[in-house]
Design a protein around this nucleic acid. Sequence first.
RNA 1: GCCGCGGUAGCUCAGUGGUAGAGCGCACCCUUGGUAAGGGUGAGGUCGGGAGUUCAAUCCUCCCCCGCGGCACCA
Length: 642
Amino acid sequence: MSISLKFPDGAERSYDDGVTPLAVAEGISKSLAKKVVAAKIDGAWWDLTRPLERGGKFELVTRDSADGLEVLRHDAAHVLAQAVQELFPGTQVTFGPVTEDGFYYDFARDEPFSTDDFEKIEKRMKEIVDADLPIVRTVWEKEKAIQHFKSIGEIYKAEIIDEVIKPGDPITVYSHGDKWGDLCRGPHLPSTGRLGKAFKLMKLAGAYWRGDQNNQQLQRIYGTAWADEKQLEDYLHRLEEAEKRDHRKLGRQMDLFHMQEEGRGMVFWHEKGLTLWRTIEAYMRRRLEKAGYVEVRTPQVLDRVFWEKSGHWDKYRPNMFVCETVEGETLSLKPMNCPGHVQIFKFGQKSYRDLPLRMAEFGACHRYEPSGSLHGLMRVRAFTQDDAHIFCREDQIVEETARFIELATSIHEDFGMVRDHIALGTRPDVRAGADEFWDRAERQMLDAARAAGVEPVIAAGDGAFYAPKLDFQLKDAIGRQWTCGTIQLDYVLPDRLEAEYVGEDGAKHRPVMLHRAILGSLERFIGILIENCAGAFPLWLSPVQVVVATITSDADGYANEVAAAMRKAGLRVELDLRNEKVGYKIREHSLQKTPVIAVVGKKEAEQRTVALRRLGGEAQQLMPLDEALAILTKEATPPDLR
RNA sequence: GCCGCGGUAGCUCAGUGGUAGAGCGCACCCUUGGUAAGGGUGAGGUCGGGAGUUCAAUCCUCCCCCGCGGCACCA
């Protein structure tokens, strides 16, 4: 018998039945056989040493491909598990998948691991690689497998097989020589030697068994693994680079803000940080006004009774900052702006002619977030949302949503953020409302996205419990994704708080509410902006736009004139008259990420010119002061005013 | 909230069972220098907080607080 394999380049060749992918690779070239880690037959994974059972579309997966890396990392996880079990007898294995940059493995062990153990574990892993143990795949029957894992004390594995694998489905176990084996779907390398040594253990963390807080806490060891040493080094270098853009670090270095322990999750905005904030806020106000929004402001603290009516007291209480007065009232800081906006909507009568009513607020909210979730500006307890609620009729939902998508897209672009995709969060398992409602609501969101020329990616089950939503996924300069901007449909709150408008028919109707934000929170968005540009803000956003630096004190008088002229032209300017060398001043302001340094010395003073030096460049642009003013003010104009 | 790691000068970090150091920054002095660090001098610390062991604790033990990395959470 022979089988026919169809290769990606279109070639088709026949082989003897039972040939292994490794043998096929060897038949093609020696170097290919060296690089190959697994195969795919009609898209399904196949181990290199497992005899092929049928022909079809055939692909050899090499270690430097994305698929190949996945195989390597999976093997790295197994080698890690073997090393750990050999070094720490009594440790149980649970689950060890591949991640974006590497892998992890969750272990159950009474004593804690320490990062000090990493060296020892890595050493043993390398010994296992050197031993080049053959990796053997065996197929088990469910009951037998459960018994086997129970008998060797691996209760977690037994539980997975028992609960996750359907009766009759084959169970595969991969063994490293006769020393070690693990339940696994595969595929795996033919032997441990093929893994190579471009791996490193990275960090240690707690994790819950099957991701559930009520379950036992396991110890997770994270690692990274690559096709070769060079790739590993590049990766470690990328991590260092990412660390340099950490907004917490830059925030301190650039004197933008700070946080301290008496106010966990709360931000002290310094002058420069607040300048950034105000620039963004002013820009947003202009954009919202042009887009037909009205701006309001609602109380910071409201009576418990109010939150009971809105439903928050019931559902959101653990996250609310609640306080009591000497007179015995119970109040709460607002965790959200929506109920407040409904009050403004309800004040007086609304007609269908008032709809859609787009009500915006830079709403300062407080939420008691779990201590372990706090993270710089990204996750805080006091934050300001660029919030708005659009009150409209049901037949206006699609148009309003489409308009919002266009507005948000344009704003994100103005901030230099690139969109990856828009996600449509559909009905979650636990939800309010009948299926017909969800069918309609999801349809409306989808239609709206398409009306705005966007095909959303479906995020099944990610909707709010009362309605579907669209989330904007942005991608920053180093490829990380952030959710900025969301629009959620809400039929529940208007009903609960009895919002009404008078329709064309003279009868009272319930409006629909669209909750929406474009930046999310100002705090978080500023954090993202900082990391996106590594602190080097575009001129219009930069807290300090120009530093006028003198060469010698001869130029002090002229430097003052230059700075004054720039300020008059609306630029944010600092003056550096210190008795230091220019080189020193250049270095210091460059490290502060000042976009433009205007150097003035005797020559400039005589000619009434300035020498501009841009951040990141070494060239000097010598030009008359008037010309510099014209160029810089033009460049510093916010994008919506250009 | 849970697990692991950490907390020493304004910042970044070294260090020791006998109460402490560097670089940068800061102050003062000298230097007026043409595009990424000119030189000198000096000030600055409850070694996160509390308790314990010890003749003696920044160091060892325990508790707490905070930070960092994950997990869980994030209508």
